[in-house]
Design a protein around this nucleic acid. Structure first.
Lengths: 347, 347
DNA sequence: GCTCTGTGTGAGAACGTTTCCATGTTTTGG
DNA sequence: CCAAAACATGGAAACGTTCTCACACAGAGC
């Protein structure tokens, strides 16, 4: 059926070993033999059999990429960056998605091991079960987590500098004169969410602003529906916020929807800031958001991975993805206090 | 290093052949031997070597998935659907992305062939070069294209019923009394874009409405920026449209941004409809959009693929992804003519 | 003339499966 | 009681690579 090295050897009138030497540019090959082999390779459209190669050499040249729930397109961008970095180092990136939590990713990890990947990159929005890490460890396959860190499980992680990102953004809002700044964020119990919450708190604290529990909406899910519900509560308060910081652009979408329903304008009546900058530029109006500096991600991931491949017992390491505030003018300088009360209308 | 069948055989005190029989549930195995083997498999955490398996049996159990440019998350959803359908049939789906057009997907296809995938699913927004199809053909690997069809290249395709989707949506707008309905769509020269344009034209024609070139904005790209630019032109017309049909949600985003700038309200002043329904529900307000009925996609893809695997010479076939109009109330019944003129304000 | 080194080449043993074939051991049934 | 069928097992040859060895033939140096 398909063309093998033996086929090439026969066509070029040489041995399989010589074909191998030509393909790998190793050992001594006469110019004549090389030319004949290369000619045959081209003519027959030879494509090496990855399975045989990996089986014999124990080097698959494959890096696995486990992606879970990629609805906002962030994982796609990360994957792209990693793809490039991996290719630059002679690796191919193969991706497996996992949709259903708790079952899929188990099977996916198993498949990766089965395929003989030399490393695994885990890009996940939801949480990855521990059993997966155990399997990887047993198989001796190094892994790197991106976006969500798993340092506690002994996995090198590349995480977003969420604390700083949120802290800076909130501070910026404070500096524009806002004093009642609401938070709409996720209540998930994980480092990412904790950092975002802490960033908000610290910014308030360092600005000498009180922490008002009524202004902190922690919702169970990163969906617009919850964003809207949170905003509904915030803007039915007697003393509503003048600015809303959202822990994700999807939440900001919901907030904007509610503000429009209430006939409140952005940014004239309320300032809104998103996070992730995955949708913000598409809103009307485009709102401020904290973008992730994803350019170097692939390189960083590969560095962590290769380091662990070479030194399996090195201490667990964490690197950071920086953040970059995108100013689109939706945080307005606030002059009067309670400017909202006059303009506020109910449905 | 890793556990092999021989390791299991040794641990269970049987031969490799018996281990194989247990693993495949084939042939005769005594209950005792089976139990011992299964016990050993569990205890040692045996994971079969996919490479050896594929090499020997010439059945990799792998379906390749080539994804290009997945910024709107549509491919992710398609991939998920295919993933499920493939798994239901005992196949694993491995995905490779391609970012840079013209080079990546060539390498990706080569890798797929090298891995020994038994079929390939191509989900692509941009166009796939012909050389890829040629390679696949030579390797005897059946392929199915999703979203964008490649019937001319002899590839079974699962395409969106774009003509009908647009036709119905535009007709709906007409039935609400609108007579000046603008189109903002992509100018790309491919069946997808042509169908959308034709759907719009046919709906106007069948409603007895004139086709006004001034209302047809064909932009080079599916970006919000172009949507905004197109809308700017449309709403600087002496006789602006009362409704805008957008060929993609991203374009609709731009249109909404411009409308907000011009202080035009949706849906009170202008009706806006999107396409793909990938973002529409996140806008403020959420706008009508033509959703794709993606539930059955995976099944359909696998049916096409398996059919071609069994009958490599069957005639090229096309199936359709249906569309479903999402009514969110952004197409308002229009009573007066030129209702806009009074309310229109310039920046 | 002989070793030595530098070139050039091919044979063949793995890698971990799958699978066919051979060889037993039991059970069945006439 | 013996042949045939059913059950149970192991040996070993592939699959297409990689890679070590062995071998052959130059020309160079003694």
């Amino acid at each position: 059926m398909s063309v093998t090295m033996e086929g090439i050897a026969k066509a070029a009138g040489v041995s399989v070993a010589t074909v191998g030497r030509v393909l790998h540019n190793s050992g001594y090959v006469s110019a004549q033999a090389r030319a004949r082999v290369e000619q045959a390779v081209r003519a027959l459209g030879y494509i090496p059999n990855q399975n045989a190669r990996a089986l014999k050499s124990r080097r698959s040249g494959l890096i696995g990429n486990l992606v879970m729930q990629n609805l906002n397109g962030l994982s796609y961008r990360i994957t792209n960056s990693v793809l490039r970095a991996a290719e630059r180092r002679g690796y191919q990136l193969v991706t497996m998605q996992s949709a259903e939590l708790g079952k899929d990713e188990f099977r996916a990890v198993q498949s990766f091991i089965s395929l003989g990947v030399e490393g695994l990159v885990i890009t996940s929005d939801p949480l990855v079960p521990e059993t997966c890490f155990a399997m990887l460890k047993q198989a001796g396959i190094p892994a790197v987590a991106v976006e969500r860190g798993y340092l506690e499980q002994g996995i090198d992680s590349l995480t977003v500098a969420d604390f700083a990102g949120v802290y800076d953004a909130v501070l910026r809002i404070v500096q524009k004169g806002h004093r009642r700044i609401a938070l709409v964020a996720s209540a998930v119990e994980h480092s990412v969410e904790k950092e975002r919450l802490e960033g908000y708190r610290a910014a308030l604290r360092d600005s000498g602003l009180p922490e008002d529990p009524a202004l902190m909406e922690l919702v169970p899910d990163y969906t617009a529906a919850f964003g809207q519900r949170a905003a509904a509560r915030l803007f039915s308060l007697a003393d509503p916020p003048t600015a809303v910081f959202c822990g994700a652009d999807t939440l900001a979408a919901g907030v904007l929807q509610l503000l429009m329903k209430q006939r409140l304008r952005v940014p004239e009546d309320v300032s809104v800031v998103g996070y992730d900058d995955v949708l913000s530029r598409l809103f009307a109006p485009p709102i401020d958001s904290v973008a992730l500096a994803l350019e170097g991600t692939g390189e960083q991931v590969m560095e962590l991975l290769l380091r662990r491949m070479q030194q399996p017992d090195a201490p667990v390491m964490q690197k950071n993805i920086g953040t970059l505030y995108q100013d689109r003018g939706t945080v307005l300088m606030k002059h009067r206090d309670h400017s909202l009360e006059g303009g506020k209308q109910h449905e």
